[in-house]
């Protein structure tokens, strides 16, 4: 067991390293550098040149990379945003909390939808109920997330006015009060639900085919032969086997969520990491862009790591190789 985890970590570390190199090289390709937002055009070019030399901006790229990565690792120094005139870490802090809540609520919705639908569809396969659910996954697969989110915003936000059409909280509420909490939740529901309804179709279909597969296995026939009741067969024998892989995919969901939040936060103007990323790209605030890509890239590497470890815990067959 520990051997597997160590081996898996040995794969993840070079991945993170490689990602940081890629992100650094991308940052180098971006126009402008650490000084471009700060320089007063009236300063003597020779003085600028001296400053560049002092900051190490004229060094070859691998030396600059080492400088940069030591700063990131030891001091958490991700640079300064020239638009906000603030440290990038400070800007990201607030946004990260918002995205965290959005992702959490989305995940809760995803599983709340996927598990009952998947179980119904797998248990009563080829009945009317199953056909309805399969129809939903079929349409869900063909609908791009951003189109669904747009239509949901148009209908529920603008036409019916049931949900706010932007922001993360209504203005004028004091943090910590119950109304503040309710308003946050009200702003979260529509973005989270529209993301969950589309991304969940994978899980529904997976769970369905998993249950249909397990249903025909020998140990289920044995359980029935021993006289186990139908509900016991499903709840104890089949579900246990089918739900575990779903739990393990939890880590992979993170990668999907990152892509999803870019669309959903842009459409609902929800102030999170995805929206910050798009804004910063458009305003050429590249130190923010670099930091966001690095952080979310590491998050998805760690997500995959987490999934593999959970999977190896619940399914010993994976450990053997």
């Amino acid at each position: 067991m520990w051997k597997f985890i160590v081996r898996r970590l040995l794969i993840a570390l070079p991945q993170i390293l490689l990602l940081s190199v890629l992100v650094f090289l991308m940052a180098q390709m971006m126009p402008g550098d650490a000084l471009s937002g700060l320089i007063d055009p009236n300063i003597d070019p020779a003085a600028i040149e001296a400053q560049r030399e002092r900051l190490g901006l004229n060094d070859p790229w691998h030396i600059q990379y080492v400088d940069w990565i030591t700063g990131v690792v030891t001091e958490g120094d991700l640079g300064r945003s020239f638009r906000y005139k603030m440290d990038v870490t400070e800007i990201i802090g607030q946004r990260l909390t918002n995205t965290f809540w959005l992702s959490l609520v989305t995940l809760i919705f995803t599983y709340l939808i996927a598990i009952p639908l998947g179980i119904t569809s797998g248990r009563y396969n080829d009945t009317f109920r199953d056909q309805m659910i399969t129809g939903y996954t079929y349409v869900g697969f063909a609908t791009p997330l951003f189109i669904f989110a747009l239509v949901a915003l148009w209908i529920l936000g603008f036409q019916f006015g049931w949900f706010p059409t932007g922001g993360s909280v209504s203005p004028g509420l004091t943090p910590g009060t119950f109304e503040y909490f309710l308003s946050r939740l009200h702003h979260l529901i529509l973005p989270a639900l529209s993301m969950a309804l589309i991304t969940t179709v994978n899980t529904v279909q997976y769970l369905r085919s998993e249950i249909i597969d397990t249903k025909q296995k020998d140990f289920i026939i044995t359980a029935r032969a021993k006289g186990a009741s139908e509900s016991r067969v499903y709840n104890r024998h089949i579900l246990r086997n089918s739900l575990l892989p779903i739990a393990a995919f939890f880590g992979f969901e993170i990668t999907g969520l990152i892509g999803g939040t870019i669309f959903v936060e842009t459409i609902y103007s929800y102030p999170g990491m995805g929206q910050l990323f798009v804004e910063s790209i458009n305003l050429r605030d590249y130190s923010v862009v670099t930091a966001v890509v690095l952080l979310l890239g590491i998050a998805s590497i760690l997500g995959a790591l987490l999934s593999d470890i959970i999977l190896s815990l619940v399914d010993p067959r994976i450990r053997i190789k």
Binding site: M30, P31, V278, V292, V293
Partner: peptide, 22 residues
């Protein structure tokens, strides 16, 4: 396969957007 694993793990949308803009 290690190369492929690395590409799969990248946050596709973000990397593409960065490249498109630079």
């Amino acid at each position: 396969m290690r190369v492929l694993d690395f590409f799969i793990i990248l946050p596709f949308l973000m990397i593409v957007i960065v490249f498109v803009s630079i």
